[in-house]
Nucleic acid binder design. Structure first.
Length: 274
DNA sequence: CACGAGACCTGTTCGC
DNA sequence: TGCGAACAGGTCTCGT
């Protein structure tokens, strides 16, 4: 699914097209997309709501409306697009919002994992999220302390949204390679210097992802071009851009994990997490 | 607390 | 060509 940079890119494209617009009606085409309230209530409550602002929290899109907030998580295959003029629903459309001025906001999601909420206050949805990696709250010192609070493998820990909010499978692999840390490294074995490197790497890959308008892989094309600049993700068998060693793919926590066995050496292999 | 497996879903690509 | 397996940007729940 989209990770932080893809969500950020989508929001930046939606904002100018949607701010100030009123919602006329909603067409929910797959009930399980909607977490709350009930479909009937949702259709009534969202009518007449004006879109005042659209912001991002972790991988969630947060639409601030007149009274309520529309919260959307795109999960693996969700996408949002704005169509001007008449719109004919397509096969994978799960929620369609008809807006003023012949404008349509379409939530398309082939795999049906995406979720939508309409709430007065999203605090409950966000309450378990860790810090934003691009905020000042996320500092090298915080990261070092947080890593030492746990005994987890780095890769699954960085994917854990309650630890740090926004990284997904691609940017985690990219950040670990840039930081020269093996995905299975024990979090509490990371030195201060390594933590600082990881902090810098996370910032750098996310910022580059945003600068390149995100990554588009598979058939879910969103226009970004970060996929052409991956260091290791999906490049198993190819040469490491730093040292030329063949990039390896292993499975960690049921996620494909890509790394350079020469640049990213496991220093605690005598003391694995499990 | 930490991990692995299974579930939720559909579509594409890979391997024989 | 065909067909099943493997795989995909995420997250939740359960058992150990």
């Amino acid at each position: 699914m989209p990770e932080l940079p893809e969500v950020e890119t989508i929001i930046r494209s939606l904002r100018p097209a949607l701010l100030g617009k009123n919602v006329l009606s909603a067409n929910l085409r797959w009930n399980r997309t909607l977490m709350s309230p009930s479909p009937a209530k949702f259709k009534i409550l969202i009518q007449g709501q004006q879109i005042l602002d659209i912001v991002r929290r972790a991988k969630f899109l947060q639409f601030k409306l007149s009274t309520y907030q529309l919260i959307i998580h795109l999960r693996m295959s969700g996408d949002l697009l704005v169509v001007k003029g008449g719109y004919q629903a397509a096969i994978h459309d799960r929620l369609i919002l008809n807006l003023a001025d012949e404008t349509t906001l379409v939530f398309s999601d082939p795999r049906k994992f995406g979720r939508v909420w309409l709430v007065e206050d999203p605090a409950e949805i966000f309450q378990t999220l860790g810090p934003e990696p691009l905020s000042s709250e996320f500092s090298p010192g915080w990261l070092y302390a947080a890593l030492h609070n746990r005994q987890r493998q780095l890769k699954p820990l960085l994917l854990d949204q309650s630890f740090l909010a926004g990284l997904g499978n691609i940017y985690t692999d990219e950040a670990l390679h840039l930081a020269r840390l093996h995905p299975l490294t024990r979090s509490d074995w990371v030195s201060e210097e390594e933590a600082a490197r990881l902090w810098m790497a996370i910032r750098q890959v996310l910022e580059e992802g945003i600068r390149r308008n995100g990554a588009s892989i598979d058939w879910v094309y969103r226009g970004g071009d970060f996929q052409n600049h991956f260091r290791v993700y999906g490049r198993q068998g190819e040469s490491c851009p730093v040292c030329g060693t063949k990039i390896q793919r292993i499975v960690v926590g049921q996620r494909g994990t890509h790394f350079c066995p020469n640049c990213q050496v496991l220093t605690n292999d005598q003391n694995p997490v499990k």
